[in-house]
Nucleic acid binder design. Structure first.
Length: 961
DNA sequence: AACCTCACG
DNA sequence: GACGTACGTGAGGTTC
């Protein structure tokens, strides 16, 4: 438990009383926490179901709630970087105060406290004392006045004050060294939050309140004026007195008259809401210093109240602190207690350099730090930094805001911005201080999806390393077992803790705000929690790697990837927007023509983009036949079916096919690629996901640059728009037949291996072997069929699939497969081996040791298990190819550099790498790329087939491919 | 959000 | 003999 209590500023062990004071010039610095006792009591009373003491039925619910809240506060406070030196609970003494002399109606409408609550007031005071906390109260004054007086006094002494309350009437006190803390909502209230509530800085809150009044306290104010109008007026005129003296200048007639007529009432209201800093202090500040509860006295009180749960909790805590000496953090075992509670209130918001330096020092001391960056956008290549969070121990985390702003209010003419800049360390300063830590080879950095943070920080000049990634660790351990390896999911499963969702802090849908507009208290809870959770996940997951023999996979295939991908993503690729726009126009025109033609052929207008409407036209109205249905039983209108109908001589299907092709190209590519150009770089920056495809393949998104058209002439026009910078070329290097080569190796198929060794045309050789025809002079159709079979094998062939692919009968396809297996019996053996393995273990592995889980192997239905069989056949092949190109990518940057080349790797498309290089480098780059790619499996695996890479340079991607 | 379709390897 | 069907992705448009 005490693990979570260590503040970075203090060395354990310590007790509540031993919080060290920071010395200042005039003695120890005071940090006073003032708890609004009435607020606590009413909240406790209303938040809890009625509870009575068993023995005599005395209502004690509010007392119990109060004790819980107070205890939690005591414990939480210590975990904060700004732990208090002094502490008191402040109570109202009596109903009548000096305000009733000013205005007899003050708080006149307030109902008496509930009957059940009345006997609990004195008990709450007793409770406070039992916890070793002084009670403050004074006849004739409200708690708020006492709080004001102590706050002013301590502030003027140079100390700090935290008012534990959410009462808006106290917000006028907020300032430089005075803040509020709402423990129920876990929110810090500083000037920013006051501005959010009142639209003005704290020193003008009284003026605004005087204008709007308060129906609860029966403060009259000015009729018809609410917070919006009041803050607008104060902001315009500067303060209340100026406003009232210049009221005649106000344009709106009604408002002007109100201010003139009710000027006295407004001034009176100001006196009522204004807190009295000159209230006499019932106890000197020195008497309020934090001390430990007298444990026997506290135990006696809790016993008398019959609060067993609280008593146990308190006892456990005090024992933990006074008992066996807590080991130093460094000496503690790394493994976190799995269920150590995560407490978002324990996190610190770092807003001054000294505190920042302390956190950095802690990270150096511990040697490991989890971190997370918060930004104002999703795309790492363009997002701006909002803040950075760090976690050095489970529960010991902070958030360092650097780019927070107030949301701009739309109420015209108000200029909040100048007045209310968020108080935070300047960004450059934070970057300068974090850089040595994040780049220190002796401090391990841990991130969740670190590629993102790497990319963001690289743009701020920080090259983070060495780095571990919990998402990648999870992916290596459990690829295929879960759909996502996101932090929320991992946290829920392994820490049994649901982190605050982004939606909770930023809102959702259209109202979602940028993270820089999230107020700091909430931002701190969210961001620091992410770092904390990441560290805990790391401690939980990392040991499993070695245990499950996946450490090498992680270290060689995963951990080096983020750096490589960051460089590729940040480099981006140049596309020619003019060319794309012209294509888009061209497509538009032709689509328009095709649409008219389609409507004519159908005899009526319809939406060519709607499969449903196409179905109606073709099948219902035109009576065309189609056997095929979709997964949900609707009539299929996909391309293969339209092709069939077109082949039968129908006109409309052909028109639809042409329209669809253009629609796809325009909708998915031309228009969106232009929109995806980053205005700052003039290039398109994709994002690669490392933990998407279970086989280890990368996935590209936003935009997806792994599915740029290539198969049709029209499509290749889009590929021609991917170009190199002037004086440069694009170089495309792709593995030839890598999956079939790997099948030959893994399945140990002699004929295939020999064919590859001899450099034969593999599909022709397959056809020759199967159909007994010579390779020389083979008909194209024969080779095409063999090619389809070869692909089919890699996918876990079925007669149905093959027949579909080739447009032949299922019987014929079945016969082909039978022949194939007879000719290449090793393939049958390989398939059976994978099926057997997946059915017994629910996973298969690649030759590099990557584990691919296939949970469907345990599925209920036959269909599910068949699916698992095919996935198990495909995964080791696709996965090995993915592993190999990863190895090549990891080695490529160094290889290029060592060859003295400036070429950059830009894109990966599963078996292809695309580079950009100065024209003069082209030949050398091709040589390096080929060498690295062809030798990528070595030395881990000595393949029994050669890998071949074809590479070409050109000014656009299509010509290079 | 589900579905269909289609771009790529 | 029955079971849906090739493996792995991301994205746009329509429909509900």
């Amino acid at each position: 438990m005490s693990d979570t209590l260590d503040s970075p500023t203090q060395a354990p062990p310590q007790t509540l009383a031993e919080t060290p004071r920071e010395p200042t010039q005039d003695g120890p610095k005071v940090r006073l926490y003032l708890v609004d006792g009435s607020g606590f009591i009413f909240r406790a009373f209303h938040a809890l179901p009625p509870l009575t003491r068993k023995t005599d039925g005395l209502p004690v619910g509010a007392v119990s709630g109060f004790c819980n809240m107070l205890w939690k506060l005591l414990v939480d406070m210590k975990a904060q970087a700004d732990a208090p030196t002094h502490l008191a609970v402040v109570f109202d003494h009596s109903e009548k105060t000096f305000r009733n002399k000013l205005y007899d109606q003050y708080k006149a409408h307030r109902p008496p406290p509930p009957e059940d609550l009345v006997p609990q007031f004195p008990l709450v005071r007793e409770a406070t004392k039992a916890f070793g906390v002084p009670c403050l109260e004074l006849p004739g004054y409200e708690a708020d006045d006492l709080i004001a007086a102590y706050a002013c006094k301590v502030r003027d002494m140079g100390g700090e004050v935290v008012i534990v309350s959410s009462d808006k009437d106290l917000m006028q006190l907020v300032g430089d060294r005075v803040s509020m803390l709402d423990t129920m909502k876990n929110v810090r209230i500083g000037p920013d939050q006051v501005i959010e509530k009142f639209g003005v800085l704290p020193d003008k809150v009284v003026d605004v309140q005087a204008l709007c009044g308060d129906s609860v306290d029966n403060v009259p104010g000015a009729p018809g004026i609410g917070i919006k109008t009041a803050s607008a007026l104060i902001n315009e005129y500067g303060d209340l007195d100026t406003l009232l003296s210049r009221a005649s200048e106000i344009k709106q007639e009604k408002r002007r008259q109100t201010l003139i007529d009710f000027a006295d009432q407004i001034r009176l209201s100001r006196e009522l809401v204004k807190l009295d800093c000159d209230t006499p202090l019932p106890s000197p500040i020195d008497d309020l210093s934090v001390k430990d509860p007298e444990s026997t006295e506290l135990a006696e009180f809790l016993e008398r109240m019959e609060f067993r749960t609280i008593a146990r909790r308190v006892e456990a805590h005090l024992k933990g602190e006074h008992g066996i000496e807590t080991p130093k953090p460094e000496a503690r075992p790394l493994a976190a207690p799995k269920h150590a509670a995560i407490d978002v209130n324990a996190y610190a918001c770092v807003r001054d350099i000294e505190t920042l330096d302390r956190w950095i020092a802690r990270a150096h001391e511990v040697g490991i730090v989890a971190f997370d960056t918060e930004t104002d956008a999703l795309s790492a290549s363009s997002a701006n930094l909002c803040g950075v969070s760090l976690a050095v121990q489970p529960g010991e985390a902070c958030y360092i805001p650097v780019g927070h702003e107030h949301e701009h209010e739309a109420t015209g003419g108000l200029d909040f911005e100048a007045k209310s800049a968020v108080e935070q360390i300047p960004c450059e300063e934070v970057i300068a201080r974090l850089k040595p830590l994040l780049e220190d080879p002796a401090v391990l950095k841990v991130a969740q999806n670190g590629k993102y943070d790497l990319a963001v920080l690289k743009r701020y000049g920080i090259e983070v390393g060495p780095i571990e990634d919990t998402m990648l660790i999870s992916f290596v351990l459990e690829g295929g077992l879960r759909k996502s390896h996101g932090m929320d999911e991992l946290s829920k499963q392994w820490l049994e803790h649901e982190p605050i969702s982004f939606k909770t802090v930023a809102g959702t849908g259209k109202a979602q705000k940028s993270f820089k507009h999230v107020e700091l208290s909430q931002a701190t809870c969210y961001a620091a929690e992410d770092a904390d959770v990441t560290l805990r996940l790391y401690e939980h997951l990392r040991p499993r790697l070695a245990h499950e023999h996946l450490l090498t996979v992680y270290e060689t295939l995963e951990r080096p990837m983020p750096r490589v991908l960051v460089d590729m993503e940040l480099a981006g690729v140049k596309v020619d927007p003019d060319r794309l726009r012209q294509l888009s126009n061209d497509f538009s025109v032709r689509m328009g023509e095709l649409e008219i033609e389609a409507h004519r052929l159908a005899g009526r207008p319809f939406n060519l983009g709607s499969p449903k409407q196409i179905g109606e036209v073709l099948f219902k109205e035109m009576g065309l036949a189609s056997g095929k249905t979709t997964a949900t039983g609707a009539m299929s209108t996909d391309a293969s079916m339209l092709e069939d109908l077109a082949a039968q001589g129908h006109e409309l299907p052909r028109v639809l096919l042409d329209w669809r092709q253009l629609s796809k190209l325009k909708g998915t590519y031309t228009d969106n690629l232009v929109a995806a150009i980053d205005p700052k770089t003039g290039r398109v920056h994709t994002s690669y996901s490392l933990a998407a495809a279970t086989t280890g393949r990368l996935a590209s998104s936003d935009p997806n640059l792994q599915n740029i058209p290539v198969r049709t002439e029209e499509g290749r026009k889009i590929r021609r728009a991917f170009i190199a910078e002037p004086g440069h070329v694009l170089i495309s290097a792709d593995y030839s037949q890598i999956e079939l080569r790997l099948l030959a190796h893994i399945g140990d198929i002699p004929q295939l291996k020999k064919a590859f060794a001899d450099g034969l045309d593999i599909h022709a050789m397959t056809a020759s072997e199967m159909f007994g025809v010579p390779i020389e002079g083979m008909p194209a159709e024969t080779r095409r069929r063999a090619k389809a079979i070869n692909f089919g094998i890699v996918y876990g062939i079925s007669a149905f699939g093959l027949s579909n692919q080739l447009g032949i009968s299922r019987e014929e396809a079945g016969a082909y497969i039978k022949t194939y297996f007879e000719r290449f019996p090793g393939i049958r053996t390989y398939m059976d081996r994978m099926i057997q393995q997946v059915r017994s273990q629910a996973f298969v592995t690649t030759i590099f040791g990557r584990k691919v889980h296939v949970p469907a192997a345990r599925g209920k239905s036959q269909a599910e298990r068949s699916f698992a069989d095919r996935a198990a056949i495909n995964a080791p092949i696709q996965g090995a190819a993915a592993d190999i190109i990863r190895r090549a990518m990891i080695r490529m940057p160094d290889a290029l550099r060592e060859a003295g080349l400036t070429a950059r790797m830009l894109l990966q498309v599963h078996d292809e790498l695309v580079f950009e290089a100065p024209e003069a480098e082209a030949d050398k780059v091709i040589a390096v790329a080929k060498r690295i790619m062809e030798k990528a499996a070595e030395p881990a695996i000595a393949l029994s087939v050669p890998l071949e890479v074809e590479a070409r340079a050109a000014t656009n991607w299509d010509d290079a491919h």
